[in-house]
Structure formats: structure tokens, C-alpha cells
């Protein structure tokens, strides 16, 4: 029992480092879930939201259902993590947002002492007609870079529905980060996918985001901002596949390279309908020396100035 309490405390401390507020897990109006390894340390649901959970060998299986017509005011708070330096955590999540429903969820994945940790998130998502789901995932991996993270989201966004996914990893080291988003968007539906990552040391970053606009009027925005320093390596593959009339899409990838880091950006546009319109832009460059000098004239050291600029880019 004492060990569980300590684990809870450590996770909550790391959760606070990523911008979370401790009291959110005890507020009955805020839906929440806190999972350490394969142990569910806390869970709260509100009317119209169902959350089934099952502990398995190295993680948990979750099934989240937001019932038809339910709109949840407060964003759901999720905290996944591992306190020990070694371990595996696999989260299998199946989420169904029924018709005319909507909610926001903020997931904090924290591994404060990580040396050899594998964190897998297999997320299947179905959003019904006229609904919305906004999902933010914020990570903290400690300072040693010993985490391998593989968040995979496969989903379908229904007619006139909206899905937004934001992935943020700015604090501490990344380790190995390999993400895949693969989302189909139906008639007049829209998605926005954002990734903001700062890689350092020998971090390896791979972002693979695919949007399939398969029905009339579907829209997608795929936007990535990656900063890599030292010997880090990043590859960003962004794909929009537009096969229906009046579909629209845009890919925007910005990568900032410092030191001996290496960046690759591969925006892919696949259009098979002459009434579809998809655009893309990709820029890889270094920080502007004038911007650094400007901040230095206010007394910031070069390192402090670079940090301010990177935080601005990833904000």
C-alpha cells in the first residue's frame, strides 16, 4: 500500500512538471485516469462517459465510450507512466465517440527515472457523425534518454466531425520516439494533427502522420515542428491522400537543426480527384543569429537565448 502511495506521489510530481495540476485527479467533475505500469491508481468518470479498464501483463486495456449527445465540459485528464528506471508499459485504448458528442482529453505520459523503458500506445479511435474529440499528449522522459515511445493512432473521423491530436515532448530527453498516426476522414469531417518535439543528445525521432480524405469535403491539416540539437536525428513523414471531391489539405513541417543533428522532412501529397486541393511546405534551417543577438542585448547568455527561441518555436 505504501509503495503504491509513493508511486502515485512520484507520478503526480512528474505530471505537475508537464503542466498538470494535482487537484484534477480528486475533482469529481473532471474525468480522469492514472495508470502506473499496469496498475490503475485512480479513475473517475462522469455522466455519459464510460471507461472500462483491465490490467494485463505489461500494461492496460482500456475502452472509452462517450455516449450519443454527451458533451463534457472539463477535459479528461489521463496520466500514464512508470516510476522505476526499467520496464514496459503497453496501453491498448479503444475509444468511441458516438454521434453528436464531444470531449477533450489531455494525456500526460511521464517516465521521470527512465533508463530502459518501452512505452507503447495502441490507440483505435472512432468518431461518430457530428462529434468532436481533441486529444493532447504531453510527455516527460527524464534526462537520460532511456525511453522508447511508440504512440500509434488509427482512426476514423465521421461525417461533419472534428478530431485534433497534439503531441508535445519538450522537457527532458526524447530517447527513441516513433509515432504513427493514420486517420481516415469522412464527408465534411476535418482533422488537425500537431507534433512539437525537441530532440537532444542522440535522440531518434520519427514522425509518420497520414490523413486519408476519402469523402467529399473532408479536410486535414498536418503540422510538425521539430527542433534537434547535438547528435539527434529526426525524420518527419507527412502524408495527405485526397481521393474525393472538394477535399482540402495542408502539410506544414518546420525543423530547426543545431550542432551535428540531422533532419529529414518528406511531405507527400497524393491526389486522385481533380476537385481536391492539397498543399505542402517544409523548411529545415538553423536559428537566426540576429534573433540570438537580440536576446543577448537583454543580458541572456547564448544558451538562454537559444532556449527562449526554441520554446517559442514549439509553443
Amino acid at each position: 500500500m505504501e509503495r503504491m502511495l509513493n508511486e502515485y506521489e512520484e507520478l503526480i510530481e512528474a505530471y505537475e512538471r508537464t503542466g498538470g495540476v494535482r487537484g484534477e485527479f480528486s475533482n469529481p467533475n473532471i474525468p480522469s485516469l492514472i495508470v502506473s505500469g499496469n496498475k490503475i491508481l485512480g479513475k473517475n468518470v462522469v455522466k455519459g462517459l464510460e471507461l472500462e479498464s483491465e490490467a494485463v501483463e505489461n500494461g492496460v486495456n482500456l475502452r472509452l465510450t462517450l455516449r450519443k449527445g454527451t458533451k463534457i465540459f472539463y477535459p479528461m485528464r489521463l496520466c500514464f507512466g512508470l516510476v522505476p528506471k526499467d520496464g514496459i508499459q503497453i496501453i491498448n485504448m479503444h475509444a468511441v465517440i458516438e454521434e453528436e458528442a464531444g470531449m477533450n482529453a489531455i494525456s500526460h505520459c511521464v517516465f521521470p527515472n527512465a533508463e530502459h523503458i518501452l512505452h507503447k500506445m495502441n490507440f483505435e479511435l472512432e468518431i461518430g457523425r457530428g462529434s468532436f474529440y481533441r486529444y493532447s499528449e504531453i510527455h516527460f522522459h527524464g534526462e537520460k534518454g532511456g525511453v522508447e515511445v511508440t504512440p500509434y493512432i488509427k482512426g476514423r473521423v465521421g461525417e461533419s466531425s472534428f478530431f485534433e491530436a497534439t503531441f508535445v515532448l519538450k522537457e527532458g530527453r526524447v530517447g527513441v520516439f516513433d509515432t504513427k498516426y493514420d486517420i481516415e476522414v469522412l464527408k465534411n469531417g476535418s482533422i488537425e494533427l500537431y507534433a512539437k518535439v525537441w530532440g537532444k543528445g542522440n535522440d531518434e525521432i520519427s514522425i509518420d502522420e497520414r490523413a486519408h480524405l476519402t469523402e467529399e469535403g473532408a479536410k486535414a491539416l498536418v503540422k510538425s515542428k521539430v527542433v534537434i540539437s547535438d547528435n539527434a536525428h529526426s525524420k518527419v513523414f507527412s502524408t495527405i491522400d485526397a481521393s474525393a471531391p472538394y477535399t482540402k489539405g495542408h502539410i506544414d513541417c518546420t525543423e530547426v537543426v543545431q550542432g551535428d543533428a540531422i533532419a529529414e522532412a518528406v511531405p507527400t501529397v497524393h491526389v486522385s480527384n481533380n476537385l481536391a486541393k492539397v498543399t505542402h511546405e517544409a523548411a529545415i534551417g538553423s536559428l537566426d543569429s540576429r534573433e540570438i543577438e537580440t536576446l543577448e542585448t537583454r543580458g541572456l547568455s547564448e544558451e538562454e537565448a537559444i532556449k527562449v527561441l526554441i520554446e517559442g518555436i514549439l509553443s
Binding site: D288, R290, E291, T294, V308, L309, E311, G312, I313, L314, S315
Partner: peptide, 11 residues
């Protein structure tokens, strides 16, 4: 204060 001050994204 520079003659042409820079823009700083996100700040």
C-alpha cells in the same frame, strides 16, 4: 535597440 527589430515566433 536595432533599427529593424526581429520577429520571434511564439514569444
Amino acid at each position: 535597440a536595432f533599427q529593424n527589430p526581429v520577429s520571434i515566433e511564439g514569444l
